[in-house]
């Protein structure tokens, strides 16, 4: 037998191709997407009242054996997404060689041209968000709030934080950028994973916009509701 293998003879080689790298972007972006959808659904429990959101937060935090592996998994996806995305952004730019004198955006959305910039803004926002609520660096008093059942008082933390217009603006900008990233990101993800075929293409493109808008509205609703006085400390 004298058969030689053609093409990819190790899984590693897949990731040396541009399609392999985009599969990494899509898979990690997909995990992050599922996470933000679940995160938004969790946040919306603010509208159910004091008890529900604190129950939910307590449920998550009391299962450290799941919480920490999940955090590590999510952080790994984010690191892979940011590093592969940054590599591609720089590498892709080089592939043009000489730039065009007349630059015209043909057939492409603005979001599709600025994924790296929107991604970097989201990254900064994530860091700020973690320092703000999770790690208690910017406002250490938040972590001392306790409710009637001596659980962390997430409801009070959120109402306190979003009573200032500046913070609401910052969060609104952050989640708007996320929506902007995903308006292109969802359809790109489906394309990269090889599932945006023929008649599905236009439906997926529309779904991408809808998902992005719903996420923006879902996330922005809580800070805005607090600012407008719809969610108050009882």
């Amino acid at each position: 037998m004298n058969q030689t293998s053609v093409g990819m003879n190790s899984l590693w080689k897949v990731f040396t191709t541009t399609i392999g790298k985009k599969a990494v972007m899509a898979a990690t972006g997909g995990v992050l997407l599922l996470f933000v959808i679940a995160h938004m659904a969790g946040n919306l429990q603010m509208f159910l009242g004091w008890g529900d959101i604190n129950n939910y937060a307590d449920l998550l935090k009391s299962h450290r054996e799941f919480l920490w592996p999940f955090r590590v998994f999510l952080a790994t996806c984010l690191v892979l997404h940011v590093s592969t995305g940054s590599f591609l952004a720089i590498d892709n730019r080089r592939k043009r060689g000489h730039s065009y004198e007349v630059k015209k955006l043909v057939g492409a959305s603005f979001a599709s041209q600025t994924m790296w910039i929107s991604g970097l803004i989201i990254f900064c926002f994530i860091v700020y968000h973690l320092l703000h609520f999770t790690l208690g660096v910017t406002n250490p008093e938040y972590l001392t709030f306790r409710d009637a059942h001596d659980r962390p008082d997430v409801y009070r933390m959120i109402v306190t934080a979003f009573s200032t217009a500046g913070t609401v603006c910052l969060y609104a900008l952050g989640v708007a950028t996320l929506g902007f990233h995903l308006s292109h990101g969802v359809r790109a993800m489906v394309e990269s994973l090889g599932l945006r075929m023929e008649t599905w293409a236009s439906r997926i493109d529309k779904t991408s916009l809808v998902v992005a808008c719903l996420l923006f509205l879902g996330f922005a609703s809580v800070p805005l509701a607090v600012l407008m006085g719809l969610l108050q400390l009882k």
């Binding site: 541009t18 590498d91 043909v106």
Partner: peptide, 10 residues
């Protein structure tokens, strides 16, 4: 030396 696809549609 071709770049990756960013699904821009151009």
């Amino acid at each position: 030396g071709f770049g990756a696809c960013s699904v821009t549609g151009s």
